[in-house]
């Protein structure tokens, strides 16, 4: 009987002592662990899109990126597409137009289980760099009709990344929408009330309706061009911005030039030489949008 009692008491004392020691160690390391974790997450976000501050929208998944003045510069999100050896943790940064600012793939030390030397090469800048400045439509392997060159002998991993990034953009692009400040096309208004969801708003200042802000989409040279227009009661265009991802490098890009977009404020401008298709599409889009929504302020 004394033997049993001694067994129980010894085991009890040892277990309690261990538990007490561990609780002290935990209390000491816990803040450090949380801090380290947060710093690692942040450095991953910074590689995807550089910003002053990241505001968590969906925990551990989606962040709004803000500059030092608090303006939205884009979003960052994380996706985990299934690769060859397991899920691939990818952090993707998008600017306000939905163009990829950068992607970062976790290394093997951070949980990537792709084959070392083969699939694991997706973490290398020669591969991840290809995604920078691309739009969702181009993010696919070359053999799938996209613009991403797969890594030799690692097609499954390469495809998992490009498909994962594209699907991620499709899923999270809606979070970019509120990032487009309607104030930019209608500076005088102080608030906006929605008339048609995601399409049409009244621009309001001091309870007066000053005009309209609307969003439209036209077919450009390669991709759709999404744009936002501010239109005042006095039939004046107060501003035009292009929201969608870049069209073709160099030429179609010209429709983004401030100089061209500012011309709308005076009168409908001429098409841009060398980017006729894109600029005409935008001009037509603005015109037909005005024609369609005019009645709301008359």
């Amino acid at each position: 009987m004394t033997g049993t009692r001694q067994m129980v008491i010894t085991l009890f004392v040892v277990a309690v002592t261990c538990a007490v020691i561990l609780s002290f160690v935990y209390a000491f390391t816990e803040p450090r662990i949380a801090e380290t974790q947060a710093r690692l997450t942040l450095s991953g976000l910074e590689e995807a899109i550089s910003a002053h501050e990241y505001v968590e929208v969906v925990p551990d998944t989606l962040w709004q990126a803000l500059d030092s003045l608090g303006n939205r510069v884009g979003i960052v999100f994380r996706v985990f597409p299934q690769g060859y050896g397991g899920p691939i943790p990818i952090t993707v940064g998008l600017n306000r137009e939905g163009t990829i600012t950068g992607i970062r793939i976790a290394s093997a030390a951070e949980g990537l289980s792709e084959t070392p030397g083969l699939g694991a090469k997706i973490t290398e800048p020669t591969f991840t760099g290809q995604f920078t400045d691309k739009c969702a439509a181009e993010v696919a392997l070359e053999q799938d009709g996209g613009a991403i060159q797969a890594i030799t002998a690692a097609t499954i991993s390469s495809r998992a990344v490009s498909d994962g990034v594209r699907k991620g953009i499709e899923t999270y692009a809606e979070y970019l929408a509120p990032a487009h400040d309607k104030k930019e096309v209608f500076p005088k208004a102080s608030s906006f009330s929605e008339i048609i969801a995601d399409t049409l708003w009244y621009a309001i200042h001091d309870a007066d309706t000053l005009g309209l802000v609307f969003v439209g989409v036209v077919q450009g040279y390669l991709n759709d061009i999404k744009f936002m227009v501010g239109y005042s009661k006095g039939s004046q265009i107060t501003g035009v911005t292009v929201l969608s991802c870049r069209e073709t490098e160099g030429l179609g890009e010209k429709i983004r030039d401030e100089e061209f977009l500012d011309k709308f404020k005076d009168s409908i401008p001429e098409a841009i030489t060398g980017a006729t298709v894109s600029s005409e599409a935008l001009i037509d889009g603005v015109k037909s949008g005005i024609a369609r929504f005019k009645e709301y302020i008359q």
């Binding site: 040892v14 261990c18 020691i21 160690v25 935990y26 662990i33």
Partner: peptide, 16 residues
């Protein structure tokens, strides 16, 4: 018990 206590300590320390 003794071994796992030290393992847990090193586990927390490494994480931190």
């Amino acid at each position: 018990l003794v071994i796992s206590t030290f393992v847990t300590i090193i586990d927390y320390m490494m994480q931190a």
